[in-house]
Every structure is written in structure tokens, then in C-alpha cells.
Design a protein around this nucleic acid. Structure first.
Lengths: 143, 143
DNA sequence: CTGTGTGCAAACTCTTTGCATAAGT
DNA sequence: ACTTATGCAAAGAGTTTGCACACAG
């Protein structure tokens, strides 16, 4: 076992699912493989379904939706909501800032550590801060 | 003319619209009045439509949507997207952080100045930062 | 075996649009 | 007058759901 290298996708998807208590069905493994394949990814249900189709994974769109929700609820993925009517899923599930390119609607991770808070608000009484979502919206330079 | 006090709603809506180059129709003035009435507000199209109905403003839902979009495009409002399939409009159009109560899906302004950045990322080449959206997600305290 | 996951299609929610009427300048 | 806005209802996009079948433990 090697803790240094990121786990190989084909092996990882089963472990991933097992650790989360999700049954490693063929569809879930296929989707997990796709998600884990390319480093940190930010994609929509439809985009993932498209990739699944290309890979002949035999996964229906409904299952993609259900699976993404399942993955999210066990903390394997994180939802990002930036545009109305479109949910992105991030394969990094920790709290980190994003770039949003307004021109083409794509999302990327902002460089690690590039956002730091000098101050954060106190949570109102009886509340606690779950996460702090930061989206840096980018547009083409005017000049 | 008095620059110190915030403009009175009934007077303001016409000025608002004129300044933005929007025709001051009855519906737009009614919606502007509702929006300006209660300080900083965060509401959805449906919520505003509900208020318009209560106020007998005679404004259709489609017009509420169109009007909110029009107001947003001229900078009178700002869109806030936090939940999938639900757009909030903020009567404060400047860049400021929000609290999001996960329990009931409501939004509030975070206290002024409560969020400050120690560092912000450099925009990628050819890009510039348009805005930085900050949403502090709150949940009920566990204890 | 037993229960959970999948697939299909229909339902659902929020939002947008086409077109005829009404209102603003 | 001429142009833009409104209202209705229907279409649209993205997501969720109900139910029968299939698969994992």
C-alpha cells in the first residue's frame, strides 16, 4: 500500500465506495472512475452523463443524478451552485475557493491558499458556520 | 432636494428607473416600491410576486421575472444564486457577503465588515475580477 | 433470498418566450 | 404615432420521482 501516490482510479473507486458505505455497483464504479480520472474536476450531471456515454458505461441520466447526490451526501463530492439552473459537482470536497469564468460558464479551483480571510463573521446565536463558499467571478479584461 | 436621507420610496422608484433608462411603468414602479420599502431585502421572483398580489399591484409573474432581470442588468439589483433552481435578488447591488441559513433557505446580509480578505488571488491572464461572492453557510449548532 | 440500485418515462419546479394588447414618450 | 412593456399561457431546461426489473451481499 502506498500512501504517497493518489490511488489508482480502478482500484480507488471500489475503496471509495466501500468507505462511504455505498454498494460498488457497476454504474457507480464507472462514474467514480470518470470522476477520479482527471484530478480535480468540476462538472455537471449532464457532462458526466456525456462522458459515461462516450465510455460506453451504460449509465442512465437519472442514475447519474442519483449517484451524484449519493456521493455528495456521503461527502465524496461537493455541490457548487453558481448559475441558476445548473449544479456543478466538485471532486474536491473540502472548503476551497473557485474561479468562475463568466464568459463561458466554466469553473476552476482558485490557486491553493490564494484566498485567506482576515476576519470572518460570528455565527448568529444557536448557529455555526458550516462552510464558507467563495466564488471569484472573472471577466475578460476591458482594456 | 436632500442628499442625506435615503430617497422616499414613492419618489425614488421613478428616479431610479429614469436614471437607469427604464420606462417608469406602473408595474415597474410598484415593484420598485416594494423592493425599496424594507431596507435591504433578499427575495425570489415568486416572493415578490406574492407581495405584489397582496398589494393589489396587478403585476403578472412573467412581468416580475422580466422586471427583475431588467433591474439586474442595469445594476439596480444583484442576483444571488445559492440553491439550485432558485434565484434571489438583493436590493443591495454592491459586493458583500451573505449568510445562508441551510435549515430554512433564507438569506441575510452578513454584518458589515465582518468578512475581510487577507489575500485574494491574481486573476488569470487577460481576466479581471468582477466580483467575489462570499456565502457563509450556517447550520444549527450541534450541541 | 432480501434489500438496495437502476432505468425509463413522466412529473415537477423555476424560468423564459411568443404574440396580441396596453401603455409610455 | 411609434416603440417598448405587459399578460397570458405554453414551452423550455434541469432535476426529481414512481415503479418494475436487476444486481450486490
Amino acid at each position: 500500500m502506498n500512501d504517497v501516490f493518489p490511488p489508482v482510479a480502478t482500484e480507488c473507486s471500489a475503496a471509495w465506495l466501500a468507505r462511504a458505505g455505498l454498494r460498488p455497483t457497476r454504474q457507480r464504479r464507472a462514474l467514480a472512475d470518470l470522476l477520479l480520472a482527471g484530478g480535480n474536476r468540476h462538472l455537471t450531471a449532464e457532462a458526466l452523463h456525456g462522458e459515461a456515454l462516450e465510455a460506453d458505461a451504460g449509465v442512465s441520466l437519472a442514475t447519474v443524478y442519483n449517484t451524484l447526490k449519493a456521493f455528495t451526501s456521503v461527502g465524496l463530492l461537493r455541490e457548487i451552485v453558481i448559475e441558476p439552473g445548473r449544479v456543478y459537482y466538485d471532486t474536491r470536497s473540502d472548503d476551497h475557493p473557485h474561479f468562475y469564468y463568466e464568459d463561458d460558464g466554466t469553473i476552476a479551483d482558485a490557486p491553493a491558499g490564494s484566498v485567506a480571510f482576515a476576519t470572518l463573521p460570528d455565527a448568529p446565536d444557536g448557529m455555526e458556520i458550516a462552510t464558507v463558499d467563495v466564488v471569484v467571478r472573472l471577466r475578460k479584461q476591458k482594456s
